[in-house]
């Protein structure tokens, strides 16, 4: 079979096929199965084993560029924490993300309010907002969180909020749940907080940064890891939800198969050209 024509194929045809493969399952879901992997189970279990009513620190280090991957896992983690009556303190080290993370937090709180669980801002959850400084902010928080964030996202004096009156520094939390899109993110929290202050942590991250964090998981520095949309979908399955990550996985799987086929075809063409030239 002569595949030489593929060599001159306009790449826009590939974009079109990829677009159809992603869009099709969103309109007509196939329902391909999702199987939770071990790192995802560990993430779920780490939160499940935290005593009910604990205070949880949740740095959400992402911006709208990572929304499809990270917002679903952020929402699922918040739901799991609120179901355990945990009180959550979120913050953001990415300048473009503070509004998005506040919106995410508020939408989950609203869900709980609608189902008869009155979550109160300042008592059950606090959004400290954005602070520039990356690692410097992390180290400063070890000395005092209210001093590092004098005002919260909504302009309140942080030290006056009932939840923040119970919190001094990292020792006030049994677990850190980091949702990370890159730098600053999980790597910096491991280096500056997990290593120095020995605060156990789990991470949900974009797929592109997941390979970098597996060594931390293997070394026990991370107690669990969610990698990208697949990790988010597996986590949704463990929590009995069917959110946007699960809905996106059909298109994700088909796109991966298509790209794998393209890679194989490309290699076959190159190989046949090389053998043809030799003969």
């Amino acid at each position: 079979m002569n595949l030489a024509f593929l060599e001159k194929l306009d790449r826009r045809w590939l974009f079109l096929v990829l677009g159809i493969l992603v869009l099709g399952p969103l309109l007509h879901p196939i329902g391909l199965p999702v199987f939770p992997s071990e790192p995802v189970r560990q993430f779920h279990d780490a939160i499940a084993h935290v005593p009910d009513g604990s205070r949880i620190l949740m740095p959400c280090d992402y911006d709208p560029g990572s929304r499809p991957e990270l917002v679903p896992m952020n929402k699922t983690a918040l739901r799991q924490l609120f179901r355990k009556h945990c009180r959550v303190v979120i913050l953001n080290l990415w300048p473009g993300g503070s509004l998005l993370t506040d919106q995410t937090l508020e939408s989950v709180a609203q869900e709980f309010r609608a189902s008869g669980h009155p979550l109160v801002y300042g008592v059950d959850y606090v959004d400290l907002g954005y602070k520039s400084g990356n690692e410097a902010v992390m180290v400063l928080m070890g000395q005092g969180i209210a001093a590092t964030f004098p005002r919260d996202m909504r302009g309140n004096v942080t030290a006056d909020l009932p939840l923040m009156r119970e919190i001094s520094n990292y020792s006030s939390f049994p677990l850190l749940v980091n949702i990370s899109a890159g730098t600053p993110g999980t790597k910096e929290w491991v280096q500056q907080v997990n290593s120095r202050f020995h605060l156990p942590m789990v991470s949900g991250c974009t797929a592109v940064s997941a390979p970098e964090y597996y060594p931390y998981l293997q070394a026990g520095q991370l107690r669990g890891l969610l990698g990208g949309m697949a990790g988010a979908a597996e986590y949704e399955k463990l929590c009995g939800e069917k959110g946007s990550a699960t809905q996106g996985m059909d298109g994700q799987s088909l796109a991966h198969v298509f790209i794998a086929v393209c890679i194989v075809l490309g290699n076959v063409i190159q190989w046949s050209k090389r053998t043809g030239a030799r003969s």
Binding site: L23, A207, V208, G248, H256
Partner: peptide, 23 residues
């Protein structure tokens, strides 16, 4: 190879996110 696979997943996720928004 594993890193490439994860990168593909990230980029396709962005496309899925935009399509979800449009739909």
């Amino acid at each position: 190879g594993a890193a490439y696979g994860y990168t593909v997943m990230s980029r396709i996720s962005l496309l899925i996110g935009r399509f979800q928004f449009l739909i």
